[in-house]
Design a protein around this nucleic acid. Structure first.
Lengths: 338, 338
DNA sequence: TCCTTTCGCGAAAACGTTTTCGCTTTTTTC
DNA sequence: GAAAAAAGCGAAAACGTTTTCGCGAAAGGA
């Protein structure tokens, strides 16, 4: 047992607890000589202040929470990397919670965060979170929240997102320019702001190019690869099958690749694909995958930076900052013209 | 501000603080009727116990720490997934720290964990952590530690690893059977137990097949893709270049793919590759990548389970459990015989 | 020299819990 | 019906900090 606390330290030094505490915090009330003695003894006994006592007293946790749908995902893991960078710079600890796209799990997680465990929350909503009531309640109890990537549709709040509409528009036009006549939009069910905006961009591009938007070409997928592959195989065997696929999330592009492998459909000759994706091996795939790549690391950094601004200035309810970053469209072979 | 605590709750109910506390913890001292009243009021006012007060009093944090070199990595992100699953089941919170392969960062992180912030630590060592003194100190202060994947070489401690020697052996024999005569072993500099064991397996396989182990075929790479590509291009342009590559970590296989693309070396005709990797798109690469795949999710689950055993039974210093899981060798096209 | 200011430090309260102990009232036991 | 036991609750200490306040001594100003 370590058990070295201020009391033990003060006894060792022949000082009062309060003096030791002040010396460690470099208070002007303590002489330079005493400070030196205290610092040396603290070092020698390897004193580490108890975070719970300090948190209780100062009503501050020096901790933030990150709530995300999943972690085994290139976008989120890189975003966390950016978050951690900023948090580490600020001397903050980071609690991570996974909702697994489950609204109930998200709600109970957020509820547990109300006791003062964290000074702020970074969250990317899960797919089927209908309401944001639990988050409002958390915010009202004084905990600032920043949403990143997947943000609430209905309410004004601090967010860090990417230009999803424009990206959806560009990706669709890219497929059109590559020669596609019939483009399917792949999404996962649920009401996510990102998915909606990307689809709006898709629809706008079709409209601008005077193309009919066929509801059958808007395909609702699941979170599970196997069932998606089956679904896509059916889609691609249709008489009037699509000649272009716009996948709104990475995993759907992967499922499409598997489906095409199985039914011997050639990419890009018979089917062109572009996808939102942060896959680092996109260029090594067979064929290399054209992507819209979100600046995941920057998103993480920006949202953490914004959160700390809100934590430090307590007036976080006055102004609502909304940061929008640009995604990159990277053309590769999966959408090549011929 | 929420600020609803036991005091406010007790005032609202006309009870003492201690009675309310006991009612919430379902103490036998409190009547069923009172308990019901208290529970209802707590629900109504949305009471959440202060974790710092409780942690201070009970000397328990209900929190574990995960210390890893990086998170934007398929192995570690899936391992965390497994850890989170178990932690969530146990009602524990998870703090994540990244060392970025920096020994000093690892040391300071571990030092900060001594104050009682966590009840246990899961750690995968960084590449150039020479000593484990800081971890010993943490352990002596009563915090159980479980190492996973990258474990200390010198000391007996609780670990969860994979069969790295056997996997290294099998991977090498696989390349030999595919026709390779000269196999390079790619590793990142540093003294990691995993890398060492994998190489031992490699060397043993060479020896068994009566092949000379050329020191020039053991290549020290860095953590940076660009420089690795350059290094590998040089290696592959050598007069007596290798005809097989055994990459001990995923990123080195990726770098090899890039290098081969640049110098127009054909895989697997001119160079066969196998790699340790948890890449989910390994089968979609061009060509598909043969891998030794570690059961990352199971590793996470096993190590968390082991840690909680140690946390719950306090006699964690008596018996030292060492779990070894099996990796899978998955043959794909990058190492095909012809 | 005397008064005021500054310096250096200690006592004690407070943060919100949990838990031990004691007290009153009710119930059980013989 | 008296003694014993149990039930139901409250007071207060404790966890380890931080911070306010107070106090004596030294230093400065007149």
């Amino acid at each position: 047992m370590s058990g070295v606390n201020l009391k033990k330290l003060s006894e060792e030094l022949g000082l009062s607890i309060s003096s030791v505490s002040k010396a460690l915090r470099d208070s002007y009330e303590i002489s330079a000589e005493t400070k030196k003695r205290v610092l040396e003894m603290a070092e020698k006994l390897n004193y580490q202040p108890n975070p719970f006592a300090r948190g209780l007293r100062k009503r501050k946790s020096i901790t933030i929470a990150v709530v995300i749908p999943e972690i085994a995902n290139n976008f989120f893991s890189v975003a966390i990397d950016g978050i951690q960078l900023i948090a580490q710079q600020k001397g903050y600890h980071v609690l991570t919670y996974l909702t697994h796209e489950d609204a109930q799990s998200e709600e109970s997680t957020v509820k547990h965060l109300q006791g003062g465990r964290v000074d702020g929350v970074l969250i990317s909503l899960c797919g089927d979170s209908a309401s944001v009531g639990h988050l409002l309640s958390l915010n009202e109890s004084g905990v600032p929240i920043v949403f990143f990537d997947r943000v609430p549709e209905t309410r004004e709040c601090p967010t860090v997102t990417t230009d999803d509409f424009e990206s959806g528009f560009k990706a669709t036009e890219h497929l059109l320019h590559a020669g596609c006549k019939r483009i399917a939009y792949l999404r996962v069910r649920g009401h996510l702001s990102t998915s909606q905006k990307r689809m709006d961009g898709y629809l706008a591009a079709l409209k601008k190019n005077k193309l009919h938007a066929d509801p059958k070409m808007i395909v609702d997928c699941t979170n599970e690869n196997m069932s998606n592959v089956e679904l896509l195989k059916k889609l691609l065997k249709l008489k009037n099958r699509p000649d272009g696929i716009f996948a709104s999330v990475e995993k759907l592009a992967i499922s499409t690749y598997y489906a095409c492998n199985e039914i011997k459909l050639k990419i890009p000759e018979q089917l062109k694909i572009i996808s939102f994706s942060n896959l680092r091996t996109a260029s090594l795939l067979s064929p290399s995958l054209s992507t819209i790549t979100q600046p995941a690391f920057e998103i993480g950094k920006e949202s953490a930076t914004l959160l700390f601004q809100m934590i430090e200035k307590k007036n976080f309810n006055n102004r609502i900052e909304q940061v929008v970053l640009k995604s990159d469209l990277i053309e590769r072979n999966s959408s090549k013209r011929k």
